[in-house]
Structures are given as C-alpha cells and as structure tokens.
C-alpha cells in the first residue's frame, strides 16, 4: 500500500500477506479444528467460496481432505464464520499496515485521502466485506478500483502507452 503524490511514493508499507497467506491460514485452521489435512488448491477454493472480512450471510461448503488420525480421505463441512476466524490474523496484519501507512502520511495528504478515500486493488479487494471492514477500522471512505484484478497490469500498460509523460515513475538499471 502506498500514498502517492506528484508522481512519487510519499509513504509506503508493504506487508508480505496476500491471498496465499490466507490459503495457508485456512489449511492450519482446518488441521487444528478437524484434524484434516487440506491441499492448497482446495483451501483456495474454500477461500473463494466462503471467505469474508465482515459478517455476511452464513454459507457452508463441503471439502475433502485427508484425516490425520486414520490417514484416510474424509469429507467435512465448514462455514463462512469459521473461515473468517481462520483468516482473522493475516487480515489484521493488512489493516495494521494500512493504519501504519496513514500514521506516517503528512497531514496535508491525509486530508486529501480523507476526501477521496482509499482505493482498493488486487484480488484482496474482492474479498467479501473487505471495503466495509477497512472503512470501519480506519474511518475513511473506501472504494474499489474499477478493475481490481487488472489494475496493476493496466497501470503498467498505461506507463508504456504514454511512456514519455510517465517515464518519471519508472526505474531502469542505470538508476539502481
């Protein structure tokens, strides 16, 4: 996450928590609660189906994994509130990082952001209830990028289309 002004990054904070981290914590949670080992692909599907950051309607899903006690395949049923509990930790790491970034943002810019809101992009923006959760925690308006999954690719593409005017935001090997 970053605060940007005049074509440069003013404050930024990067936490190495993303969708993968959420997958892992779901695996850990299911292992602890049900003694069932899940594959990462299954936990990703589970996340896509059930995960939410904010209280939403209760959904249930069946997943198949390997029972750690008997060693045999087993089917279990889990709910969205359980998955919310599972991802609570990585999610709070993200929210803390947003708060820390706001903390080091100069007051002028913080006022601008208060007016315009925080823009959410990336797959994480599509997590159910993520904007509500972030708005509640920071007290700032939150909006979602028009194309959250493609924002990064579109933005870097735009830097190619108008290479000369946006050259300032790029780095090349001679500068490093």
């Amino acid at each position: 996450m970053a605060v940007i002004s005049l074509g440069g990054v003013v404050a930024n904070k990067s936490v190495r928590v993303g969708g993968d981290e959420l997958d892992n914590s779901i695996v850990q949670f299911i292992k602890k609660e049900y003694n069932v080992a899940l594959g990462l692909r299954t936990s990703e599907e589970l996340k896509i189906k059930l995960a939410s950051a904010w209280v939403t309607e209760e959904l249930y899903a069946e997943v198949r994994g390997r029972d750690l006690i008997t060693g045999l395949p087993k089917t279990i049923v889990t709910s969205s509130s359980e998955i919310r509990e599972a991802i609570a930790e990585p999610l709070s790491a993200i929210i803390d990082a947003v708060k820390m970034t706001l903390d080091v943002t100069p007051p002028e810019l913080a006022a601008d952001i208060m007016e315009k809101g925080i823009m959410l992009a990336g797959g994480g923006a599509l997590l159910n209830g993520m904007p509500e959760c972030l708005a509640h925690e920071t007290g700032m308006p939150v909006c979602i990028s028009p194309e959250p999954l493609h924002a990064v690719a579109l933005g870097s593409g735009k830097s190619l289309e108008s290479f000369d005017s946006l050259k300032g935001v790029l780095f090349s090997s001679n500068q490093v």
Partner: peptide, 15 residues
C-alpha cells in the same frame, strides 16, 4: 500535487 492512497492486496484472487 494531491494525496492518493492505494491498497493493493495480491497473491491470489479471492473471488
């Protein structure tokens, strides 16, 4: 010259 805040959460799409 105006502040913009972007939060990009990647690493696998969630939905």
């Amino acid at each position: 010259p105006s502040g913009n805040m972007i939060v990009d959460i990647g690493g696998g799409q969630l939905k």
